[in-house]
Each structure stands twice: as C-alpha cells, then as structure tokens.
Design a protein around this nucleic acid. Structure first.
Ligand code: FES
Ligand code: FES
Lengths: 144, 144
DNA sequence: ATTATTTAGGATAAATTTGTCCGAAATAAA
DNA sequence: TTTATTTCGGACAAATTTATCCTAAATAAT
C-alpha cells in the first residue's frame, strides 16, 4: 500500500508534530529512535519533506526538525504520500495496465474504484493535526 | 497494492480461464503476448499457481495451461493474492508497525480498518469465473 | 527411436527500494 | 575564532523484486 519510505515519513511527521505541539524541537536521532526507523534512511526522507515545506529543519547545535502549528493544520496525509510515493496509488491500475482508464477498464476496475475512493478520501480528509491528539493521549502508537 | 507478479498472475489466470471456457488450452507464449507480460517471469508465476492447483499445466507439443470449469468457479482472487504476495495486505499495519494490532493501534488503524475490510471482501467474494464473463463480452481488458 | 514442442527449474542479471557512510555546510556555544 | 553539534547531499552498499537465460524433463507427432 505505502512504501516503507512513506510509512517512515508519516510516522516521523507525526512524531515531530507531537513534539512541536509541546514547543520541543526534535533531532533526527530522537526521531528515528522514537519511531524505530533506520537513522540515515530517515534523514533522506526528512530532507525531502523539508524541501517540500512539510517541515522545518534547523542545522547546528540544538538544531532539528519542527512543524509549525499552521502547517500541521494545513497539511493532509495525501500530500506526504504524493511527495514520497507519487500518485501511482490514485492513478494506477489495480492489475497493472498502463494507467487506470474508464474507457478500457481492467476486470477489477469497477470494484476497485470504490476502494480507491475510500483511500483517497481518507488521505484527503486527514490532516496531521487530526492524528496528533490521539497520539498525545496515548491512544495510538508510532512503534511497538 | 499488488506486486507486479501478482498483477501478472491475476491477468494470466483470467486469460487462461477465458480460453479454457472455449475449450482451448493456451501456451505461455500466447499468455504473455495476450496479457503483455515478460514471458520468462510469467512462467515462474504460472509454475507457482500450478503447484498450488490454481491451474493445470501440460508439457509437450500442444501443451500449455488450462483451468477446469470447476476450478474457476471455486477459486477466489484472495487465494491468488495469498499465493503470490502472502497476506501482508491483510495482516500488516498501514504504517509499518510489526503487525496490525488492535491493542496498540497505529494512528491510521481505525480509518484503515474499513478499507482493509473492503479489499478483503472484494477479493473474498470474487471468483475467477465471475470476472471471465465481462472479459468475453469485451467489456473489460487484460492489456492495452 | 527420433525429433520437435512445451513446461520445470536452477542460475544469473537488471532494476528498484531500502539502507549506510562520510565529508561538507550551517550554526550555536565556548 | 575554535569547537561541537546537527542537517545536507553525494556516493556507495545491501536487500528485494523483477526479469532473463539455459538446460532438463515430459510428451506428442513423425
Ligand atoms: S483500469 Fe484497472 S483499476 Fe481502473
Ligand atoms: S495497527 Fe496500523 S493498521 Fe492496524
């Protein structure tokens, strides 16, 4: 469904967001520890997100990553997915034909359309902020 | 969603099924031409499916692959997916935690559950036979 | 029996994704 | 100004997935 890179991206963003909410900037080291991800690989992903204005990166001592409150209210999951995985999930064909295409549909097209719509809506309607609350209440988790 | 191998598998099975319905046995060469897939790679996949009794393979001149009518009525898509891709799609966590787990859910767990159920039901309720009809009527396609 | 055709299966290769390493750049603190 | 800390960015490496190649085995037709 999502690539590992994308899963790390979402987990990282959510962790940074919980910290930012409490006024704490967080370092790569912390992040990869708290979401249980490979550090250097995570760095690459955060770089991409930062280039795409999903988060802020600050170099130097006490540097790290932050997400402004405005940003976590604005940014939807779908943006993160698009940045990391592209939009194959939304435009691709379930059975691997060149692209999903209503005119010449694959045998799963009709049944798949509903699922795709569900996924799209979920990602389109979910902001970072929305997910942060449950995390802070300890109702959901970023690692086990 | 599905690996390429799995997409080829489903397309191949459906093509073989349409041919079998008309009493025609079909060769690897035909199959990979008709579903537009790499021949040798497709061979590996068909081998797996044949070992798992999803289809029949016959060696030698006029050999090839078939699916008995009984089989296409019985076999659901979920079985093909399980054989080729395993059950990661059904048991895995959307955000890559060790496994999906109701007790310690990831932040997407609740919203993802519905989607997962949809996918599962679609694959569980769809037999090969069900998809063959539309294919024969030219309403759906296995390549473009 | 011999030959031609077709799948089986092992070895290998290419492509992609995932992951690591290390020096450069920025920057804060001493 | 020097040093320590932290991200950036490029090169490299490992793992996985996708794809190819070749010989063996089966078997039908000659
Ligand atoms: S054509 Fe295959 S999913 Fe739309
Ligand atoms: S715990 Fe992540 S999907 Fe269930």
């Amino acid at each position: 469904m999502f690539s590992k890179a994308c899963q790390y991206a979402i987990r990282a963003v959510l962790y940074i967001a919980t910290q930012s909410e409490q006024g704490r900037r967080t370092s790569l080291k912390d992040i990869s520890k708290e979401i249980d991800s490979p550090e250097a690989f995570t760095a690459k992903i955060l770089q991409q997100l930062s280039k795409n204005s999903i988060l802020l990166s600050i170099k130097g001592p006490n540097g790290g990553f932050e997400i402004p409150d405005e940003t976590m209210k604005r940014v939807k999951l779908i943006e993160i997915v698009r940045i990391i995985d592209g939009d194959q999930l939304f435009t691709g064909c379930a059975l691997g034909l060149k692209a999903c295409n209503e005119e010449k549909p694959c045998p799963l097209h009709n049944q798949f359309l509903g699922i795709r719509t569900n996924i799209h809506q979920l990602l389109e309607n979910t902001t970072i902020k929305k997910l942060v609350n449950d995390l802070e209440l300890g109702l959901t988790f970023l690692k086990r």
